[in-house]
Amino acid sequence: MTLHHKWAAVPPIHLVESEADIISDLAWAARDRFPDICQLLLEEVGRASLYAPGKLPDDVVTIGSDVTYRDTKDGVARRVRLVYPSHADVALGHISIFTPIGAALIGMRVGASILWPDRNGHLRDIIIDAVVQAPAT
C-alpha cells in the first residue's frame, strides 16, 4: 500500500530536480536496509513538483535547511537541520532524510502539515513553522 492510499490528504511536495535525483539514488541504494523509509522517500519524490536550481521557493524544506516544526500531539516546537545520511548527527540536531521525521519534512512548505509514521509506526501530525535555508556556498 502506498503513502497516498494510507492517508487521504497529503500536502504538495517541492524539490529541486538535482536533489530529487540524489534522494532517489540514495533510496534505491539503501532499500534493503531501510525498506519502509526508502519506499516513503521514493513515493514523495514521485509526487513532487520539481524545480530548476534557484527557482524553489525559500519556504521549502531542502537538504541543509534548518526547520522548525511542531508535533500537534504535544505542541512542542523542534528545530532540526535536514541532511543526507552521511552528515547526520543527532547531538547537533542534524537529522537524516532516512529517519521518519526527515522523510516527512523534505519538500514541505511553511504552514503545511502532514500525517507521518514515527519510529514506532504511530501516525503523527506535524506542522512546518519555519524554514531557514543554508547560506549559499
Rank of each mutant, 00 (worst) to 15 (best):
E19I: 01
I22W: 04
N120Y: 04
V16D: 03
G46S: 12
P135H: 11
I126S: 00
A27W: 02
V80N: 05
I63Y: 13
H122M: 05
L41I: 10
I95T: 13
S18H: 03
L40A: 14
P35R: 04
I37W: 08
G54L: 06
A103G: 15
F34P: 00
V67T: 12
D36Q: 10
D71K: 05
A134G: 04
T62H: 02
R31T: 05
I95R: 10
A136C: 05
I127G: 01
A20E: 05
G93L: 11
L3F: 03
E43Y: 03
T2F: 03
D36F: 06
R33N: 11
L3V: 13
C38Q: 09
R31Q: 15
A48R: 07
Q133V: 10
R31G: 07
S113W: 09
L105V: 14
S24M: 04
I37R: 07
L105C: 09
A104F: 00
A91T: 14
P53S: 15
G46H: 12
V45L: 10
L92F: 11
H4D: 13
I95V: 15
G111V: 01
H4N: 12
H14N: 09
E17C: 03
I127R: 08
Y69C: 12
V60T: 13
L123K: 03
E43H: 04
D118W: 05
P57A: 15
I128P: 00
V90M: 05
L123F: 02
A27V: 06
D118C: 09
S113I: 02
L15V: 02
S65I: 00
P35I: 03
D36P: 04
A8T: 12
G54Q: 03
D74E: 03
P117K: 05
P12H: 00
A134N: 06
G46K: 06
I106W: 02
V45G: 14
R33S: 09
A91E: 12
G121I: 06
I128Y: 00
A52L: 13
R109N: 00
I37V: 13
R33W: 08
D71F: 02
A91F: 06
H122Y: 07
L26N: 11
R31H: 06
I23Y: 08
A130W: 04
R81H: 05
I127M: 06
R31K: 12
A134V: 09
S49L: 13
W7L: 04
I22T: 13
A52Q: 15
R47K: 11
A8L: 13
G54S: 10
Y69S: 10
S49T: 11
A130V: 01
G107P: 07
A91D: 14
V60S: 04
